[in-house]
Design a protein around this nucleic acid. Structure first.
Length: 931
DNA sequence: CCTGTCACG
DNA sequence: GACGTACGTGACAGGG
């Protein structure tokens, strides 16, 4: 039904609903798991009451709930202090925001938000569209900023007072008609939104002036005529500020929206969806009321004791690869897209011809909106493989055009009201991004699993499917083969691809249903919503941007290394008296421990000689052979892993290297970097550090590097509550020297490098779950001596021992440990017997510290895009406690300031650390200089 | 494909 | 009483 005369559009100010609900209700939590749920409960009650009230001739024909998009809007570009004095949303409200979107969809009401715009702008645009189409519009809000829209069929409704606001109502509030409201606001300003206005002028005076002069422009032009001297002066001097205020107050009523009024038609809620959501939230009263009204039985709400369990694979359709559909034309695809809109969510999976997202081309896309049902849309399957002679680039028949399919999918994939569900969303999002599609919002089964089960198992789809669905997906190898004869996915016959690919979407959707439900009972909703989900687009952007690497620098170094290695090789043959493979530990060991008959050789479990660096280092003092092997190995490592391999990773099109971050890479919350790993570029030796000279900035730009100083020790001081450490950090002392002074009783002014070095080793040892053996090996001192150090350390800082003991007890009892931000790291082996338990114990000591640091830098990364918007800088890399940016030369100071502010404040407001977080910064034309 | 080695925080 | 141990990663080469 098209929108026109006789139609009535309701626009609900979603944010106003949320905040009113939040403040109106006590901090309710869900009974089964303690998830804060008060605002969602109030929101649902308000929506329900609203829907109930929609009867009679005045009922809307179209409706939407409009939300503010989190982050900054275009107004911040006009004025960076816009809304700057707003405190951040309360911590227990943040995880409820996405749930209010879910609630809206559950009521089958359109749910809209647009990045870079405020809800008010969307409302303005839609209200104008409705008015221009000859229909009516009611804005359900009491926000005075929206009053400029009233008139010509547009009214407001204050839902609290149940009072309609028409042109007269606006006049009552502002003293002028809606068309002059912006002028009054420009003068009066707004302390809530931090709009400056004209100092000393409020709404009353502003209305007086506007009514006298007609409009703001005339007023400002003729300001000289004002009698009151103070007022006249203000208007003349603050003209710029007033004009800025007007632009800030003016709503954008000509936004380009990717949906139209027709899409907002009122729909009846679907009983299953709505009751399912209310049941999941455990809103017992509302659930019963809604069920009664719909004339169905209210589903039972699981009692807390029954929350655990394999999962609710109740009446899921069986997984049947033959049930999947192959979509070959536009009308079939449109039908799937329509279903996605109707549901409000869709599982999506892409198939490509490469695992490298920067070069991969789409072979096909699958969608699933209902378990047991899925489709595959082939768009790039080529002949070849079997009939390879001339088939190389020729497409298999029966496929939609790539561009046609994407044109149909793009609006849905970008629509804020349709949740796109992926397994490893970052991969698919990057693929779509390269085809000009910005997928949002997303959910990710891999990240859901990681948030709930880190330390318990891996989070790949096959493992998850086996574990939670008791189903083994078709192995990709059966389609692609292995080794040299393997083909790429685009060469797979479409009929085979349908079964494999669509099954993946089906499995993803099934996993999502199970995980979404369990997330709350595992009490990691906040972790998922604040530390995992928002990081996906941030990482995707960093990866796609990449960092420039200079091939010539690497290639020159490679040649130099090769020459040196050849020299060392000859020398080693000479020393050994014969030729051998220097790269074989077994052969090196045989020469050292058999031919030269040296002591101290150990064998590996496979019976080969073992020749690790620390053993060779002991021998190197007296034996050139060992020293040369070490030299050779270092060069070999640098050459093969860095100077040679890195060149292969330079992207042909961009000239840059694009790593890929594995968000679930480490159980502690750290990430891993791969293809290539840019988190282990050498820095400790001079020769290795030079590799960083190949990582360069573009012409006219500079690399800046900001790293947290001693972040893990600071976190230890906070968590274990070590007052002496805390004070030392507050006073900016040399923390290792201070430790040395305390433990070894040496006054600070008599400190020697050696004593400080030992204290430093102990400090790090504590973070790793110290043992006498480990410390002894690290410091190369007898084990008894190392144990003495540790004992003295514990005597001086008894809090450390308490922390270690209580952490161990917690892990033994619960099977996991936690970071300050609620991330859980499971330690299933903590109750094992033997050395495995020792490993688990030390990991349990380390995980809260390493994990809290990881959480903090994640928070910084998530906030970074909004904080540096407007500055000519890009975030390129993360190395656990360091962020690297590329910035235009004339903005270096601003860039460092902005990034440092975000990093140093990243723990807050969730956690207030007892120690300051300090960030050091460096800059340069290459990474070696910047670090 | 697994193991040993070594690069990083 | 002996044993084996610092925490977290990824890439490469050798060898079966």
């Amino acid at each position: 039904m098209s929108f026109g005369k006789g139609c009535h559009l309701h626009l609900i100010d979603g944010s106003a609903f949320i905040f009113r609900a939040y403040h109106a209700l006590p901090p309710l939590t869900r009974k089964s798991d303690g998830l804060p749920i008060g605002a969602v409960a109030g929101f649902c009650n308000m929506l329900h009451r609203y829907v109930e009230g929609n009867t009679g001739p005045d009922a809307p024909t179209h409706v939407a709930v409009i939300f503010d998009y989190s982050g900054k809007s275009f107004r911040n570009e006009m004025y960076d202090l816009y809304k700057a004095n707003r405190p951040p949303a309360p911590e227990d409200l943040v995880p409820q925001f996405p749930l209010t979107r879910d609630a809206t969809r559950a009521f089958n009401i359109a749910c809209k938000e647009v990045e870079g715009f405020e809800a008010d702008d969307i409302i303005a645009t839609l209200a104008h569209q409705a008015r221009d189409a000859g229909g009516r519009c009611t804005i359900i809000s009491s926000d005075k900023d929206l009053m400029q829209l009233v008139g010509g069929g547009v009214e407001m409704l204050d839902a609290m007072k149940n009072k309609r606001i028409d042109v007269d109502g606006v006049r009552e509030k502002f003293g002028v008609g809606p068309e002059r409201v912006v002028d009054v606001q420009a003068l009066a300003g707004d302390s809530v939104d931090n709009v400056p206005g004209a100092p000393g002028i409020g709404i009353k005076t502003a209305a007086l002036l506007i009514n006298e002069f007609g409009d703001l422009e005339s007023l400002l032009d003729r300001a000289e005529e004002i009698k009151q001297p103070k007022r006249r002066q203000t208007l003349i001097e603050k003209r710029d500020q007033i004009e800025l205020s007007k632009r800030l107050a003016q709503l954008d009523c000509e936004m380009e929206l990717d949906f139209s009024l027709e899409d907002l038609e009122v729909q009846e809620p679907e009983a299953d969806t709505l009751l399912g959501f209310l049941g999941e939230m455990e809103f017992r009263t509302l659930l019963k009321r809604v069920a009664d009204q719909l004339g169905v039985e209210a589903p039972a709400i699981a009692e807390p004791s029954a929350a655990e369990g394999a999962g609710s694979s109740e009446e899921l359709a069986p997984i049947d690869p033959d049930a999947y559909e192959c979509v070959r034309d536009a009308s079939a695809l449109e039908s799937w897209i329509a279903q996605s809109y109707a549901r409000g969510y869709v599982a999506v999976d892409t198939e490509t011809n490469s695992l490298n997202e920067m070069v991969a081309e789409l072979a096909g896309i699958c969608l699933s909106v209902e378990t047991g049902s899925a489709c595959y849309v082939p768009v790039g399957h080529k002949k070849g493989a079997n009939d390879d002679l001339f088939g190389g680039e020729e497409l298999q028949p029966g496929q939609m055009g790539l561009n046609d399919a994407l044109a149909l999918l793009k609006p849905m994939l970008e629509d804020p009201s349709v949740l796109k569900i992926f397994q490893n969303a970052k991969y698919d999002c990057k693929i779509f991004k390269r085809y000009g599609i910005d997928v949002a919002p997303i959910d990710d089964t891999m990240l859901l699993s990681y948030a709930m089960h880190a330390g318990e198992h891996n989070h790949g789809m096959d493992a998850l499917s086996e574990r939670y669905l008791e189903h083994t997906p078709i192995p990709i190898k059966t389609l692609l083969g292995t080794g040299k004869s393997a083909i790429t996915f685009d060469k797979v016959p479409i009929e085979d691809a349908v079964k494999y690919a669509a099954e993946d979407a089906d499995v993803t959707l099934r996993l999502w249903k199970i995980f979404k439900q369990r997330l709350h009972s595992k009490k990691v909703t906040t972790v998922y919503e604040t530390l995992e989900r928002p990081l996906v687009p941030v990482l995707a952007e960093m990866e796609m941007h990449g960092i420039k690497v200079d091939r010539d620098t690497l290639s020159r170094m490679s040649n130099a290394f090769a020459q040196k290695m050849a020299g060392l090789e000859a020398e080693l043959y000479e020393l050994a008296g014969h030729e051998f493979n220097v790269q074989s530990p077994a052969q090196v060991g045989a020469i050292l421990f058999e031919e030269m008959a040296l002591e101290g050789g150990k064998k590996t479990k496979t019976g080969q000689w073992s020749t690790p660096a620390d053993v060779l280092e002991d021998l190197a003092a007296t034996h050139d052979f060992a020293a040369r092997v070490l030299d050779y190995r270092q060069l070999q490592k640098l050459k093969s892993t860095y100077t040679d391999a890195l060149q292969e990773h330079i992207n042909k099109d961009t000239g840059r290297v694009h790593t890929s971050y594995v968000q679930t890479g480490a159980n502690t919350g750290r990430m891993a970097s791969s293809d290539p790993n840019l988190q282990n570029i050498p820095v400790r030796t001079e020769e290795g550090r030079r590799i960083r000279e190949a990582f360069v900035s573009e012409q006219g730009k500079t690399l800046i590097s900001l790293d947290y100083s001693q972040i893990e020790l600071r976190i230890l001081a906070h968590i274990a509550e070590i007052d002496a450490l805390k004070e030392a950090f507050r006073d900016g002392q040399d923390i290792h020297a201070m430790t040395a002074s305390e433990v070894f009783g040496v006054p600070m002014d008599e400190m020697t490098g050696e004593i400080r070095r030992r204290a430093k080793a102990i400090n790090f040892g504590v973070i790793y779950g110290i043992s006498g053996f480990g410390l002894a090996r690290n410091l190369r001192i007898p084990r008894g001596e190392a144990q003495d150090f540790i004992n003295r350390y514990f005597e001086r800082f008894p809090g450390i021992r308490t922390y270690m003991d209580s952490t161990k007890e917690f892990a033994k009892e619960h099977g996991y440990v936690q970071t300050l931000f609620g991330r859980k790291i499971h330690t299933p082996e903590i109750n094992a017997k033997g050395p495995r338990a020792s490993f688990a114990y030390r990991a349990a000591i380390n995980a809260p510290i390493q994990g809290t640091a990881a959480d903090i830098i994640r928070r910084a990364m998530i906030r970074m895009p909004a904080a540096i918007k407007g500055l000519p800088m890009k975030m390129l890399l993360q190395v656990h406690d360091e962020l690297i940016f590329e910035v235009e030369d004339d903005a270096i100071e601003d860039a460092i300031g902005a990034a440092r502010d975000v990093m140093q404040g990243a723990a807050e407001p969730a956690v207030k650390l007892d120690v300051p977080l300090i960030v050091d910064a460096g800059r340069g034309q290459n990474w070696a200089e910047a670090h």
